[in-house]
Amino acid sequence: MAELMARMAEIAVSRHEADVLVALGLGSCIGIALLDRASLVAGLAHVVLPESRPGGTTPGKFADTAVPELVRRVSGLGGSASGLHAVLVGGAQMFSAGAALDIGRRNELAVKAALATAGIPVTTTLTGGNAGRTMRVHIGTGLVTCKQAGSREQTIAVRDAGRLRAAA
């Protein structure tokens, strides 16, 4: 198994069964998992801030540039345009004081707006609150998991809920 890290402002994509995409310790940052109902292709962006400034060179850092870049990378690996859906984790308010106060909530709004612009539905959201979270996308099983500090890892979403129900 290979863990592909999406660190701050990074994007990881894969279509290999053995891979797991990981965003460790999301605080005010948002992890956007893009899953494709029609294939194994998935991507994970670790977004830091809501809005890009002109001339930025790191598309994964901002919600408005990360979403199109994530879609481009997932499509590049063969993800279908119509089967994509998003799972959002993070956007917490970690501190009760300081400059970072409102970033989590603003990140969430900006990510949702960018996904709406791209025409991609959000199927699961685990955002807000004041705890950090680690997010994993298991390519082989299509499961998305989330772990909060001090609690167990939980499955929060699947690649294709319809298919899962049909198989059960």
């Binding site: 310790g25 605080g27 005010s28 940052c29 970690m94 970072a100 970033i103 705890a131 979270r133 680690t134």
Partner: peptide, 10 residues
């Protein structure tokens, strides 16, 4: 009290 990454990244 939380994950180091969540605190430092924020």
């Amino acid at each position: 009290s939380d994950m180091l990454g969540a605190i430092v990244a924020t």
